[in-house]
Every structure is written in C-alpha cells, then in structure tokens.
Design a protein around this nucleic acid. Structure first.
Lengths: 207, 207
DNA sequence: TAGATTGTTAATCGATTAACAATC
DNA sequence: TAGATTGTTAATCGATTAACAATC
C-alpha cells in the first residue's frame, strides 16, 4: 500500500469532499480550489490540502483542482470504483425506507439482500427485493461474500444480528439501532441514531 | 450559566453516556463506574471522568456513580427535562419512518407537525399526524414556537426548506438530505447521510 | 483498615492552522 | 509577468491520557 496509516479522522472527511465535488460537477463546474471547497464545507482550506496530501498531489499551483479528476482519485482511495453489496437486516419502516432509497447505487453501494424474522413479512416483496427469512442470514451473506450490512432492527435484537453478521464474514456494519454494538476489532461499526444528534443540539437551545 | 464554554466534542459524548446509563438502568443495575462505562462505550475511563468534571462532581470515591442520579444530571445538562417539539419536513419513505418512530418521546423529543408539498399526500394521515401543506411551514412552525426540525426531502430541495425553517425561528436542524446546508451561526445543523458512513468504512475493506 | 474509584493536574499526543516557497 | 493556489513545514492549539492524592 502506498498510503500507510492515514488518520481515521482524515478518511472520514474524504466522503464529504467527494460529495461536495459531485455537487460542483453536477452544476457544470470543472475546476475548484481548496478555498472554494473550504467555503462549501466549513472546513479550513489548509486542512483540505493537508488531508489530500496524505494520498498524493492532485492539484496545480495557481489553478486548483480538476473536479472530475479529484473526485475519481477520492473514489479510488475509498475503494468506490466497485459497487459494494450490502445486506439489510430489519424490514420495519426504516428498513423499507433504506430498501427503497435510490441514493446508494451511484455512490458505491447496492443493497442486494434484505432479511426479517417476521413470518408475515418474509417472502413479501419490498421494493425490488423479496424479504428473506432471518434464519438464513448467515448462510446467504456468507455464500454471497457480502462484506457490508445495515442493521435496522429493535435495539434489543441488534447485538444478536451483529454477531450473526460477523460470523457470516461481514466487516462493516452501519447500525441504526440505538445501542452500542460489540464487534471484533477487524469489523468496523458506525452508528446512526437521530436522538443522539437531537440531544447534542438541545444543549444549545435557549428558550 | 454555571457551565461556560464546554468543548462541543464533550457535549457530543454526553448523549452516549446517557444512552449507556439508561441501558444499565433498564438491566436493573444501580451503580456504575467510569471503568464500566468506558468498557461499554470504547472510550477511556479518564475521558469520561474528565468530561463529567466540566459540569460538577457526580460520583463517590471508591464507589462510582449512582446510575439514576447521573442520568438525571446529564438530562438536566442537555436540557432534556422538557420534551422538545420537532417539525418534520418531507413525508417520503424516510419521513414516514421518522413519523412512526417510537424512540423519540422518552428521550426528550416529540414530532408535533409534519409537512409535505405533494398534493396527493397533504391532508392524509401518517401515523398520528395529518400531513400539512409545505406552504404553511413557516407560519405553523413560527406560531407553535418550534425550535427543532428534521429535513427529509430530496437534496435539491433541502436548502430551501432550511431557509424557511430558519425564518420560522428554528434553531436546530437534523438534515437527512445528502447535502451540506448553509445556515446562520446561531442555528445548529447536524447531518445524517448513511452513504457517508458506508464510504468511510469501505476504505478499510479488503477483498 | 484495605480496596476501589473519583476528580484533577500535568504530560503527552495528535490535529489544526498559519505561513510561504514553489510553480502554474 | 503578475496573480493565484498548491503542497508542506513548523507553530499552535486542543484533546486525550497517565498518574495520583483524596476519600468513600
């Protein structure tokens, strides 16, 4: 690997840069600068340049960055040149919303299998998917070599789901259940809990 | 104010502490320690003690923390003793999932109004809400003194929605649209974009 | 008392920023 | 050339951690 040991906090900003670049590109712009990106993202231009410098030199002095080129480089760095297959566990309201979301495909991901343990839901059609029985989760995910999964089940079921996913070989989990999951250190887990964000912001409210 | 200028990164961890405490409480435990919390949360015990020390002394040497007491203190600090009213804009699949989510109420928040601009949806019933016309967003939110909102509309509509919310007096926005919003500095904005998390984790995948 | 854990200080670590030579 | 912007270094800033006296 040409890029040893880049801080995780830097990796975490690359998707934000990519999203901003895609937006500029969609607006027909061809060139941007660290200053313009900084302005869009509320990040300092120095930080953007420093972050990118971990991976190579992508700009031209005096000119800036070619948007299409830089976006392609970030996609390469993040391994987004392929489309990752993702399993979704839990077909409640949130699971349905995720199953129907169109925004995954062109940003590097595709849900390929969805699972639930409710007999009334198993076998039904949700978006383009047939809901598979939770009992088959490990077998199917393992067989299909799926490395990423999203958990959209109640909090008290999430750890069990996570354990099964890990056994099936999943290495990245996006957890929507409002609970902290335990997983081996080679498995990445990130959480989405709207209440955590609301509670964070409520600190600052004045009435 | 008794608590001037606590770093935002500390505030952001308080909801995680609270969630862990609630979980321990639900399991019937009465006392915990910074070490046990640290173990649950993958945060160092020193950091937990330091974070809490910004706000007062909540533990007993040799014993630890009374869970119920500490949870109550964190709720007070985060201003969660009241239930904040929240407006939801956008009644697509995700909006429906949020409207139907039971997890808000007991953690300090209640969706009170939901809006959409689709004539086919306006006036229909979604969970316990009647969908209000987007045209009335500013008036209703302003009138009801709502300070928090969630945006669940397509990316290209999000900034306009945000602007209207700001005009209506909203001071905290949870944005589900995959785009960076601009808002005055006294308005807090936090983003939830699953793809950002997936892209972050895909960096670490090996095949 | 002996053992455990807090709250806090000081040291360490790492991230951000300022500044500028290089150069397009 | 003059103006602009990169990539990078060194300085600054802030967050995390280690360690321990206080004390339950």
């Amino acid at each position: 690997m040409a890029t040893p040991d880049v801080p995780d906090i830097v990796i975490g900003r690359l998707p934000l840069y990519l999203r901003a670049l895609n937006q500029l590109e969609a607006e027909g712009q061809e060139i941007t600068s660290s200053h313009e990106l900084a302005d869009q993202l509320d990040i300092s231009s120095a930080q953007i340049r420093k972050d990118l410098s971990h991976f190579g030199e992508f700009g031209k002095q005096g000119t800036g960055y070619n948007i299409e080129f830089l976006a392609a480089q970030i996609e390469r760095i993040l391994q987004l040149e392929q489309v990752w297959h993702v399993a979704l566990v839990g077909v409640g309201d949130l699971g349905r919303a995720l199953a129907g979301y169109n925004g995954f495909q062109h940003r590097g991901f595709r849900i390929t299998h969805i699972f639930d343990n409710d007999p009334d839901i198993i076998g039904t059609q949700v978006s383009e998917f047939e809901v598979l029985p939770y009992a088959r989760l490990q077998e199917v995910v393992s067989e299909a070599d799926i490395l990423m999964a999203m958990i959209a089940v109640p909090a008290d079921k999430a750890q069990g789901v996570c354990d099964t996913l890990v056994k099936a070989g999943v290495k990245a989990v996006l957890n929507y259940a409002p609970t902290k999951l335990r997983a081996p250190s080679d498995v990445h887990v990130q959480d989405i809990d709207p209440v955590i964000h609301l509670q964070h912001m409520s600190y600052y409210l004045t009435t």
